[in-house]
Write a protein that binds this DNA or RNA. Structure first.
Lengths: 333, 333
DNA sequence: CTGAAAGCGCTTACAG
DNA sequence: CTGAAAGCGCTTACAG
């Protein structure tokens, strides 16, 4: 590959001038700029990024950490991040943590070695010590999206999980449901706690506290299916189930089908996330939709601002939408 | 961050020795190795990767290009790649091309600038010129997984698409089906052509050529749904439909449901890929399963061998499995 | 086995 | 506005 020297020779100037023509064209005369441009085309020059990064002590790479890449919930968020990152000349490295602390640690270690300029966390399920260490320097290039830590204050882009859950439960109650159960994500997860708070408070406001019932899943199909079976086979069967993910809701749908319980006639089910699949399951799923693309975009913008030393709104709350489809209906009782 | 100089000072040796203790410990005495190790721990040293990359003219980064990150089919493949890559000290950069030639070009340009050491293609839907240019040097660090080009010979890890389709059609025919339609992926796609060949040849072998019917989808839910409607509303309705993806099969399921056509009583449906969802749709989907994790692993191993200058088996064919679930049954006619 | 030294390809403070 | 020169943090051929 030709280097900046070759360009300088072809343009009849110094390497410093070539570098400037590239990095800060305004510091160079129009004529020079053009000669350099022609020389670059002539020799087929492309800058060596490793050299540039070494010199500038940056990597132009952003890492995003997520708990499970196979969850389609994340893909649209990643697309949003990528869009903004590429526009700004950054690359996105997608890191799948898979609940493995070692993996998370490996990705965090990219920060001090200048292999990554910043991290966007899409999971709170990583060692807090890791985050604390990274956060200790002021203006640490860390942003949280969708999730948050109960005990570490990070710039965050998310929805109002409390409100979103409250809204879903209100809707179910307005349909006449009085026994509304919930399949939560991991109960240690702060956003699940928020949703469960919204769930409980809304039931209480409706005088339905007595029937509150929360079981724990892991966001995946299987856990929804299993908890759905447990809930529906037991005595005092709920007439509606609010799930913290679409996958779990679809698992519940399968459980109901297997038990011969009609949805929505005998059971209403609400999911969370509005993944593509939710329109194609049977029946089509009523669900809480988050603006995933926008969350990704905003999180990346926030991180880029941090990197630029700009001050940022530390908490951005985007709005959700309850999408009513076919899995919910009036209570039969 | 401390540099190699700080370590050298702390260990009482030269930077060259520190470097060697790290890169080729066998070139250094045991005592030196230990002093260096202690010094590294003492000063908290971590190598600057940009500097190392610049010096070594490599990036230790592999790019994988895929057509659509939101397709869950790819996640398990990516996991397989990541696993092998990390073990070998490489990073995986996941590039979503979204049918945009400019994106593909941007990722390919990482190669000559040493920002990436190799590329694994999970899509054939990119400008061939790009691939040709990259392939022109001998032992180009390019590997194809799942897909292939009709006109460019690249080291490949894939299944036998012809056989897999033939197997599925054989199974359907053995169930008594005589009108078997197919919802193909993009017809320009070589793997779809292979599957369609397998489909046609098998029908012919059974004397069923007359009823062959192939419509085109794009692998997504919606196209399966639309083509399903078209196929099922028309005259001479098929009694079985073979789809080139699970998402399309699930779309067909929805179309059948909407038209009141029972599956599998009145219609059998076979998908392709065995995505997680295929177990949770109604009815559970019979599908062709590919060893996705293994495909990812093998593709990465192949690329790493190429990078090491080793010779590789240029065509690795992994086996598929027909997973029979509830969406297929004996023909009613 | 070890060290001095050159050099990977850039960028930038300094001088003019 | 432009150039000479130093230096980012490593690695490695060369000598000893």
């Amino acid at each position: 590959m030709p280097t900046i020297k070759d360009v300088a020779k072809a343009a009849g100037c110094s390497t410093a001038t070539v570098s400037r023509a590239l990095a800060s064209p305004e510091k160079v005369t129009e004529a020079t700029r053009q000669r350099v441009a022609r020389a670059i085309a002539e020799v087929g020059y492309a800058p060596n990024v490793a050299a540039r990064n070494l010199r500038r002590a940056e990597s132009r790479t952003i890492v995003t950490l997520l708990p499970d890449i196979s969850n389609p919930f994340f893909s649209e968020i990643i697309n949003g991040m990528e869009e903004v990152a590429h526009q700004a000349g950054y690359q996105l490295l997608v890191g799948d943590c898979e609940r493995d602390p070692a993996r998370a640690e490996a990705y965090f270690s990219l920060l001090p070695t200048n292999q990554a300029d910043g991290i966007i966390l899409l999971t709170s399920d990583i060692p807090h010590a890791l985050v604390r260490r990274a956060v200790s320097r002021a203006n640490a290039p860390l942003v949280m999206a969708c999730e948050f830590f109960a005990d570490i204050d990070l710039p965050t882009v998310a929805i109002d999980n409390y409100q979103a859950a409250a809204h879903a439960i209100d809707y179910l109650a307005s349909l006449g449901h009085e026994r509304i159960a919930s399949v939560s994500g991991p109960v240690g997860n702060p956003i699940c706690r928020e949703r469960t708070r919204g769930y409980r408070d809304t039931l209480a406001a409706r005088g339905l506290s007595g029937s509150a019932r929360v079981v724990e899943g892991d966001f995946g199909f299987r856990s929804g299916y299993q908890q759905g079976l447990a809930l529906l086979e037991g005595t005092d069967r709920p007439s509606a189930i609010f799930c913290h993910s679409d996958e779990m809701a679809i698992g519940v749908l399968k459980a109901a089908r297997q038990l011969g319980i009609g949805v929505p006639e005998a059971l209403s089910v609400v999911g969370f996330d509005n993944i593509g699949f939710s329109e194609y399951c049977e029946p089509e799923l009523t669900t809480v939709s988050q603006p995933r693309h926008e969350i990704g975009q905003q999180a990346m913008r926030m991180l880029l601002s941090l990197l630029a030393g700009e001050s940022v709104v530390r908490r951005q709350t985007l709005s959700t939408q309850l999408i009513v489809r076919k899995s919910t209906g009036r209570s039969a009782t």
